[in-house]
Simulated assay, not measured.
Amino acid sequence: YLREVLTAKVYDVAVTTPLTKAVRLSEKLGSTILLKREDLQPIKSFQLRGAYNRMARWPLQLLLEHGVVTASAGNHAQGIALAARHLGCQALVCMPEMAPYVKVRAVQALGGMVELVGESFQEAQEHAQVRELTTTGQTLIAPYEDPATIAGHGTIGYEILRQTNMDKLDAIFVAVGGGGLAAGIAAYVKALRPHIAVIGVEPTGSNAMAQSLARGERVALTHVDAFADGVALKHVGAETFRLCLELLDGVVLVDNAATSAAIRDVFDETRSILEPAGAVAVAGAKAFLRHYGLCHQTVVAVTSGGNMNFDDISLVAELAGTG
């Protein structure tokens, strides 16, 4: 994946996000905590990288004639809608009926057509696959499984190694949903600096990657906790699982209270409010360092998204008090 990451076409629409020290959190934990601020992308999520890289590699004429279809819990949907607007094609996005309204409205504001289908991402994905088969020429853009999508996300690893002293970096913590972000970062970082640990982080209520890695095969969950909707998937991708099985150094599980406390931590540092899925990597870094009693480490946590429903802030504030 090294060549694919280095030639990824993400910077037509994505920006190089800052890597900033979380001063208060670093002092509290006795280590240097660096935040990779993907919540500062134009759509407030890393998903723009993979979505655009995948679409930019498809023949433009086919995109213009037939458009694209995808399924998403919200952030990938925004990436597809922005990429489609930039390329001048139509985008149909299938989202779960319980998708946060802030994400639905954002997709529509970017010109995407939204169909709300089913209770989970998997149901929306099945609907998108049917639409691809029944709509002549429409291209299905996978949210995490496609190699071009994975390579697009891998550009975050490229930036991290450029923005820090890679020889002194101990670990990178990455949220895991379908696995595309973790797979992309791990594929790039491990190719150049294999000593850097790349550690996935999942909520305890949607831990498909942790269970899959433990069993050595992909596991399908029967139910997922939608608190961190951006990573609430019942199963991971085949290619992302293959890469994570080979390259990830482990997976940390965090509960909703720990994730909410991490949202509060980042707000205290930056005055920015992460969505739960965007904060699980911070929660995982905290849990890992405390569990193993580690100090004087230098670690990166990817703050992967900031599309928070305003109505959910009170619940997060309540849970943060117990985290």
Rank of each mutant, 00 (worst) to 15 (best):
L213K: 13
A220M: 08
C94V: 12
G178K: 06
A106D: 00
G74M: 11
C295I: 08
G306S: 02
L140D: 00
E65D: 13
G230V: 08
A186F: 08
Y158H: 13
L253F: 11
M95Y: 08
T16K: 08
C94F: 15
G205C: 00
G250H: 13
G278I: 05
T222V: 03
S31D: 05
I80R: 05
I172Q: 03
Q211D: 00
H86F: 10
P59F: 10
R105S: 15
H153T: 00
E217T: 11
S206D: 01
L253S: 08
V198Y: 13
K28H: 13
Y101V: 12
A262H: 02
T204P: 05
D39C: 04
A187L: 10
H195P: 00
R162E: 10
A56T: 02
A277G: 15
S272E: 14
V266M: 14
A279P: 10
N307S: 12
T298H: 12
T298Y: 09
T135S: 12
H223Y: 07
L34K: 01
V114R: 05
S272K: 14
T270I: 03
M113I: 11
L243R: 14
F46H: 02
Y158R: 10
L169H: 01
A262N: 06
T222H: 13
D268E: 14
K44N: 10
V224A: 09
M55V: 02
E115K: 12
A197F: 01
A83W: 03
V252R: 04
C295D: 06
V23W: 14
G278M: 08
I313G: 03
D229Y: 07
G179K: 09
D170R: 04
K36T: 10
R85E: 03
A283T: 10
A281L: 09
D170L: 13
S260I: 02
G157L: 04
R218Y: 05
R193N: 00
A128K: 06
N256E: 08
N307E: 04
A124L: 02
D146Y: 07
F121L: 11
F227L: 09
L6Y: 04
L35N: 06
A317L: 09
L140W: 12
K44Y: 00
E132H: 10
V299R: 05
A232V: 09
R242C: 04
L192Q: 06
Y144S: 07
V104Q: 12
T259D: 07
L233K: 08
V104A: 12
E119Y: 15
P100I: 02
G67A: 05
A8G: 04
V300F: 04
D12T: 03
P42S: 01
N307K: 08
F227I: 06
G50N: 06
D255L: 09
V201N: 08
N307D: 06
A208I: 03
D39H: 12
L19T: 09
A14K: 00
H223E: 15
Q297A: 12
V198F: 12
L181A: 02
